[in-house]
Amino acid sequence: MKITVRVWRQPSPDEAGRMVDYPVDDVAEDMSFLEMLDVLNEQLILDDEDPISFDHDCREGICGSCGMVINGQAHGPVKTTVCQLHMREFRDGDTIEVEPWRAGPFKILKDLVVDRSSFDRIIQAGGYVSVNTGAAPDAASVSVPKADADLAFENATCISCGACVAACPNGAAMLFTSAKVTHLNLLPQGQPERENRVLRMVQAMDDEGFGGCTNVGQCTQVCPKGIPFDSIMNMNREYLRAVKSSRGNQG
C-alpha cells in the first residue's frame, strides 16, 4: 500500500518545527508502525535528508520508549504501543499525521523525541521501597489479599511511556504517578513510607509543571497497559489521608 506520512520535523529543542509530508510506497500490511518509519528513514538517508528521530527500544511493547501521537491519538488507533501497532490498521492512500507527545514538561528534543526525564524524577521522589525488609519471610507469614495483589500487579504494569500525559487536555501526569502510588501503597512493603511516598511523588509531579486532573478520563483510554482510571481516585484518597495524618507531618 501507498501512504503519506505527515510528520513533525524539528531539528532541535530551540528551533521551530513544522509538519512535513513524505510519500511512502511499498508499505506492507504486516509491518509495524516503526518498521514503516524505518522504511521511510532509509528512503530519506538515500535522498541525503535527515532521518526522522523517534524513540524505540524493545519493539515488543514492554519498554515504553516508543510513543507518538498518530492521527490525534496517543499510540494511534489501537490501544497498544506504537511498536505493536500494525500498518493493517490503515488504508491505502491514507495520510497519517504523526506528532510528538505534547506537554509543557515534555520538551521536544528532536522530531518525535521528547525529554521524559521528569518521569524519572517523579519515581526518584518515592516510586520505590527503601526500608530494609530483612530476609525473605516464610511463605504465607505475611498475607496479601488476592484482590490487593491483583490490583497492585495491574498498576505495576505501567511502562512509563507518557501516553497519559500526551492525551490529557491538562498535561497531567496523574495516571502515571497514581499507578506507582497505588502499586506500592497496597503492598505490605510499601506501608512504612506510605504517607511520605504519596506526598513526595505528588510534589515532584507538581514541581515538574504537570497539570491537574479534571476527571476527563482520556488517559485511561490511550494507556497501552490499561492502568485503571480509579488509580487516580485512589491517589487522591492516599494524598488527602497523608495530609491529615501526623506521620506525613514529621520534619
Binding site: V69, G72, A167, G217, Q218
Partner: peptide, 17 residues
C-alpha cells in the same frame, strides 16, 4: 493546566469526555 498543555495536536483527538 493550560500551561502544561500549551500546544494543540494537528490531528483530531477522539474525545471520550
Amino acid at each position: 493546566d493550560l500551561r502544561a498543555r500549551p500546544t494543540k495536536y494537528t490531528g483530531k483527538q477522539r474525545f471520550e469526555a
